[in-house]
Nucleic acid binder design. Structure first.
Length: 328
DNA sequence: CAATGTCGTCTAATCCCCGG
DNA sequence: CCGGGGATTAGACGACATTG
């Protein structure tokens, strides 16, 4: 199998997205049917839509996917540093070009099956053969033990890079992941996280593969662990810190609801809300107020509608159902 | 004790189904 | 086709548990 896949990555330049243009060339004796359908039309449609959206950052805040290459720390301009606090300097926010759904590969889908057949599995240098690898197979674990190879254990492995701002796209169910250029990538390669930490030290984290790549629980835990490794050692974050609703916002919500419902529909409600708060700096609040999405607002009302908004009250901090333990 | 892994809580963003 | 509502999946973080 002398096949080799040439992937032409498209750099997503915010503001001008050019989609896919794939080309998976299999240099092999077999002929390469260049007309293979690489992606279900429907999906392609969605991806396109998504990319458009992604490249049209809503004005205001929202850091777009910065060139998170292992480049300089990128000082970034910081805000007035209202209060001291952790001033975690604006971190690098990265996000995959395709959403979860778009990256999932369906083994039962004909065109996906074709892609899988044409794709190469990640190197054994990461860990030995998947088939007969595991030394031990701890029954209680969702993961299996593997014998890590040089790519995962040797800091000096040829070609290894240790970015200060590592890229990472969540693991999705299944061994394969669809890339922006619509080729497939073996998620095995994401099990080894290489980065240069805040202290300038090169690190390699080795996360054992799931026994079952389709087990969502295993995938979820794997994602949490990986994201945590990156979060603790770099400035990279995959999304903004969630900002809770503040009393002023909730007061507005209350005043604009009738029996728990928007008076003029959610669309207007969301627009008006953001016109009122997005980007505003409210005394006492931490930084400018974030833009709230339709999802966010409807969820807020759904959560506290019956117990608060419908009763003419606004939720108080920590009224969810826990009071958040502050000191312990 | 330090480094890591995991859990709990809060909130966001989708996805999906269903009814108008 | 659009919007509502419920269900999923997920990230940030602090706190706690485990490991070495």
């Amino acid at each position: 199998m002398k096949s080799c896949i040439v992937k032409l990555r498209v750099s997503l330049v915010p503001g001008r997205v050019r989609v896919p243009v794939v080309k998976t060339v299999c240099v092999d004796d077999s002929d390469t049917d260049s007309e293979v359908e690489f992606m279900p039309e429907k999906l392609a449609e969605k991806i396109k839509k998504r990319m458009e959206k992604a490249s049209a950052p809503a004005a205001g805040k929202k850091r777009k996917r910065t060139a998170t290459v292992d480049e300089a720390p990128a000082p970034k301009k910081k805000k007035p540093a209202t209060t001291t606090t952790t001033t975690t300097t604006p971190t690098t926010i990265t996000q995959p070009a395709l959403n979860r759904k778009g990256r999932i590969v369906d083994t039962n889908n004909a065109s996906d099956a074709v892609l899988i057949a044409a794709s190469l599995k990640a190197s054994d240098d990461i860990y030995m053969s998947d088939d007969e690898p595991a030394t031990t197979t701890d029954e209680s674990s969702l993961y299996k033990n593997v014998v890590w190879g040089p790519e995962a254990t040797n800091i000096n492995y040829p070609g290894s890079t240790f970015p200060k701002s590592p890229q990472f796209s969540q693991f999705v169910p299944g061994r394969w992941e669809r890339m922006p250029d619509s080729t497939l990538s073996d998620q095995k390669s994401k099990l080894v996280v290489k980065l240069t930490d805040k202290n300038g030290r090169k690190r390699i984290f080795k996360n054992p593969p799931p026994k079952d790549w389709n087990n969502q629980d295993a995938i979820t835990a794997l994602n949490k662990r990986t994201v945590q490794q990156i979060r603790r050692n770099t400035e990279v974050r995959f999304r903004e810190v969630v900002k809770a609703y503040i009393p002023e916002e909730r007061r507005w919500i209350l005043n604009n609801l009738s029996a728990g419902k928007p008076q003029k529909g959610w669309k207007t409600f969301v627009k008006d809300f953001n016109t009122q708060f997005e980007g505003q700096t409210i005394p006492g609040a931490d930084g400018p107020r974030p833009k709230r999405t339709h999802s966010s607002l409807t969820k807020e009302v759904e959560r506290f509608g019956s117990d608060f908004y419908c009763k003419g009250k606004i939720p108080t901090a920590g009224s969810g159902k826990n009071s958040k333990s502050k000191a312990k």
